[in-house]
Simulated scan of single mutants.
Amino acid sequence: MSVSQHKKEAPKRVNCKVITVSDTRSKETDKSGSLIINMLQDSSHSVQDYQIVTDDYEVIYEAIKTGCLDKEIDVILLNGGTGIAKRDVTIEVVQSLVEKQITGFGEIFRMLSYLEDIGSAAILSRSIAGVYNDTAIFSMPGSRGAVKLAMEKMIIPEISHVVREIRKDLK
């Protein structure tokens, strides 16, 4: 079956949870989280939950796991906490949960970052996607530019397709 056929069979609307990882942002100052929410809604997807959590392994873990255990949530989108500083642990949390990693997400994100945005600093861009408990997880850096790039070029075009692929063998 072709990719275009897969996309035709994909759900038109998916239910999402947005998680911003930050020690400093609030709902009023979270421009990246707001951008994710707006882009999802503009694409006819539903945001079921939105949280801002601190750069703390257990707190991030619980926020993701709670979303993945909620049968109403199809996709979790995280931003922030992906750097190389000691407190940046979002990638490690996601890695500890995912059952299947979508390796192309991080690879293509860094390539696009290199080509379109930040040049060689792309080597510092950590991002990851995968599946846990039949829920897709996408984690991207917290900068507005990184979020815009990931959402426009990869997540929005493929989010329904990813959900279709996860659901196709569920009985």
Rank of each mutant, 00 (worst) to 15 (best):
M1G: 14
Q5K: 15
Q5R: 15
K7E: 08
A10I: 12
P11D: 08
K12A: 14
R13S: 15
S22H: 05
S26W: 09
K27Q: 14
D30M: 05
S34M: 15
I36G: 06
H45A: 13
Q48P: 08
D49C: 12
Q51C: 11
V53C: 00
T54P: 13
Y57N: 00
E58F: 09
E58P: 10
E58W: 05
I60T: 04
I64N: 07
I64T: 02
C68F: 06
C68R: 01
E72R: 15
I73P: 05
I73V: 14
L78T: 04
G81K: 04
A85F: 10
D88K: 11
V89G: 08
V93K: 03
Q95N: 10
Q95S: 07
V98E: 10
I102H: 02
G104V: 11
G104T: 10
S113E: 06
A122N: 01
R126P: 14
I128A: 07
A129Q: 08
A129P: 00
G130F: 01
G130N: 06
G130E: 04
V131A: 07
Y132F: 09
Y132V: 04
N133E: 04
N133K: 13
D134Q: 06
T135K: 05
T135S: 02
A136C: 12
F138A: 02
F138Y: 13
P141M: 09
P141Q: 09
R144I: 14
R144L: 14
G145P: 01
G145S: 15
L149G: 04
E152L: 12
I156C: 13
I159Y: 05
S160N: 09
I166A: 11
K168V: 05
K171I: 13
